[in-house]
Amino acid sequence: MPELSTAPSLGPLYLKAAATGPTRRGGELPGTEYVRRDIAVDPVELAEYNRVCGFRLRDELPITYPHILSFPASVQLMTDKGFPFPLVGLVHVANRIQQDRPLLVTDVLTQSVRVADLRPHPKGKQFDVVTETSAGGEVVWRETSTYLRVGKRDENAPQKERREIEPGSASGTWRVPADIGREYAAVSGDRNPIHLHPLTAKAFGFPKAIAHGMWSKARCLAALEGRLPDAFTVDVDFAKPLLLPSKADFTMRPAGSGWDFALHSRSGKPHLTGSVTA
């Protein structure tokens, strides 16, 4: 179980991903698990993250914040020699986070990151990046990020049932600015070119830059702030990309002891659907 003394530097990892991507032809996932200990939260960086995503300034971390702390380790895993797929072109299709209690800005954290569960997808192969975050020797936060490697279609692969929240009666309409991809990249380190500028996005087949999926998830949870319990699970499926700039309709509805929510384009196409369960 390799240990990381600091967060890996993302710039060199992105260059490595670009150089080695064409050599990756598939195969099994590696069994490597990276661990990083003694992670201190920078209050200034947290405040900037909260501003970009719409959270209030609090002593508690937003449930999505540990994702950006572990993101460099996940990129390290997906650029290691034994990883079977090129990082460029992977599609983030779903994200699940479970929080047993709120993490505090004063908590000293330990994070472990691994990849798991390579399996068929109707459009290729999918796998999970699994992250656990501990405080005081206890795991209190768990994340599963599911990525798709587009490839040979598999009609026999199981179809995931996507939550359906019909557009209409929106709780709010958001103006999403053209620079939100660059703003989120600055606070998260996720500088994928599809999020940064129309020209770099067009090089990867998008008509415009697109919003980060994890920004969209965080922004939705910020809209639910004050309605969320201390311990909950939030599941999100990412559907159509959110082009920048744009307007998007946010909808939230009570569902048992939690919430269902969605982000739609003004034409009614879903960008994201999700649920919160206590």
Rank of each mutant, 00 (worst) to 15 (best):
T273Y: 08
L148N: 11
K160E: 13
I63V: 10
Q98V: 14
P72A: 11
R36Y: 01
A73S: 08
N95M: 02
A116Y: 14
A40Q: 14
D59K: 12
L90S: 07
R162D: 00
Y147L: 10
L244Y: 01
K123A: 14
S70W: 04
F71Y: 15
S112N: 06
W259F: 09
I68M: 10
T6A: 01
D260R: 14
G31D: 13
H271I: 04
L263Q: 00
Y14F: 15
A222I: 09
M252W: 08
F206A: 07
P120W: 06
L57F: 09
N50R: 15
Y65S: 01
E3S: 15
Q98T: 15
L57V: 12
N156G: 13
W174I: 03
R25Y: 10
S134T: 03
S5R: 15
K269Q: 09
L77R: 01
D190Y: 02
P43E: 04
L148D: 06
H212T: 00
G268I: 09
M252I: 06
G54C: 04
I180H: 11
P86G: 09
I68E: 02
L109H: 00
F238R: 00
G189A: 05
V139Q: 12
L221C: 02
K160T: 14
S74Q: 13
A231I: 07
P66M: 06
I39H: 04
Y14E: 03
T106F: 07
R96H: 09
M252H: 14
E132F: 03
R37Q: 11
D230N: 15
A157R: 01
P8C: 14
H264K: 04
P2H: 09
A73T: 05
V234Q: 01
P84G: 01
V41P: 04
D190S: 03
R36M: 06
R96N: 13
P12L: 15
T23Y: 08
A17Q: 04
P2A: 15
T273F: 10
A255D: 13
A218E: 06
